[in-house]
């Protein structure tokens, strides 16, 4: 379930060679969906950060930053991708016990932000 995942700007940067052609390929189709993690009072901060590091391969710094955003703002967009990609991540996050949803990238601009705290389902 947690196999071979590589996404997000962090992992892309290291393999980008900066040619015009590869840039075109990357921006070509669409990156229209977000993976959102919601705050809850149960999941340990250390655990959430560990999941971001081990599943997404994020650095400790990035994982902690996203974890704190979940904690303080009630939610955080932790990954982007095609609908299928973020859905796959959501199932993996549910496997870990994190509260994850997917949304169209345009839905995330403010509309749901900050409303998650203390509310369920």
């Amino acid at each position: 379930m947690t196999l071979s995942v590589a996404l997000g700007p962090d992992t892309r940067e290291s393999t980008q060679t900066g040619t015009a052609a590869s840039t075109d390929v990357l921006t070509a189709p669409d990156i229209p969906w977000n993976l959102v993690i919601w705050n809850d009072p149960v999941n340990l901060m250390s655990y959430v950060s560990y999941v971001f590091r081990s599943y997404f391969g994020y650095s400790e710094t990035k994982a902690n930053k996203l974890m704190m955003e979940v904690h303080k703002k009630g939610r955080s967009i932790v990954a982007h991708g095609s609908k299928e990609q973020v859905e796959q991540h959501a199932v993996a996050m549910h496997g870990y016990g994190l509260w994850a949803t997917v949304e169209k990238a345009t839905d995330g601009n403010g509309s749901g932000s900050g409303k998650g705290k203390g509310k369920r389902g």
Binding site: V36, D40, E87, A90, V91, H94, G97, W99, A100, T101, V102, E103, G112, R120, G121
Partner: peptide, 10 residues
């Protein structure tokens, strides 16, 4: 159970 198996869209 709903928390263990949450909806994927809000």
């Amino acid at each position: 159970l709903r928390r263990l198996l949450p909806n994927v869209m809000k």
